[in-house]
């Protein structure tokens, strides 16, 4: 067991972890945050996608012990977040979920798309969704919901591409 310190949904956490415990299990089993679902545990399906330091990441192939100092945001941590609120509403309106198992990971990815690529055309939206599998909806409602949120925020899904850029690598 090793002690790690990190932030989960805005709360500083200090916890004992086994090195082999992946981030999703740490959150689900130790922090009782079960909104992050496990679909494959080998990085393909995207069900476990959450935010690490503001960017979507796979929690099943990230080990909690390697998250020292990181800021984690799970599906439980988006209260008051305007893009997520808009996406949640649009997901319901557009029937973008059925069984609900892929939904938390899908929402985190969708939020990344609408904030990072406002105005992205449908083909780009679909490419960005390629790392999140859904077995129920055929993606039709999911794509519609993302486009609807882009339209609401004044950046309708179209040919234009903009980029909100995260942190650059440091210079020496």
């Amino acid at each position: 067991m090793t002690t790690i310190r990190l932030t989960v949904n805005g709360q500083p956490i200090e916890a004992e972890v086994q090195p082999r415990t992946h981030l999703a299990d740490f959150l689900r089993e130790q922090q009782l945050l079960t909104g992050t679902n496990l679909g494959c545990e080998h990085g393909i399906c995207g069900a476990c996608t959450l935010e690490i330091d503001g960017a979507p990441a796979r929690s099943c192939i990230t080990y909690a012990i390697d998250c020292e100092g990181a800021s984690i945001r799970t599906i439980e941590g988006f209260d008051g977040d305007a893009p997520m609120a808009a996406l949640r509403a649009a997901f319901s309106t557009e029937h973008a979920l059925q069984c609900g198992y892929c939904t938390p990971g899908m929402l985190v990815t969708a939020r990344d798309i609408v904030t990072r690529l406002p105005g992205a055309p449908e083909a780009r939206i679909r490419k960005e969704l390629s790392g999140n599998l859904c077995r129920c909806t055929g993606y039709a409602g999911i794509v519609r919901a993302i486009r609807a949120v882009m339209a609401q925020s004044g950046t309708p899904s179209g040919p234009g591409l903009a980029s909100v850029r995260p942190v650059a690598p440091t210079a020496p």
């Binding site: 090195p19 796979r58 192939i61 390697d66």
Partner: peptide, 23 residues
């Protein structure tokens, strides 16, 4: 262990058995 995006799946699938990972 760097980003772990290849090693992570191999660990979870138990096809790699390192005893000590260096972050």
């Amino acid at each position: 262990l760097a980003g772990g995006q290849s090693l992570g799946p191999m660990l979870n699938l138990r096809v790699a058995f390192p005893e000590h990972l260096i972050g």
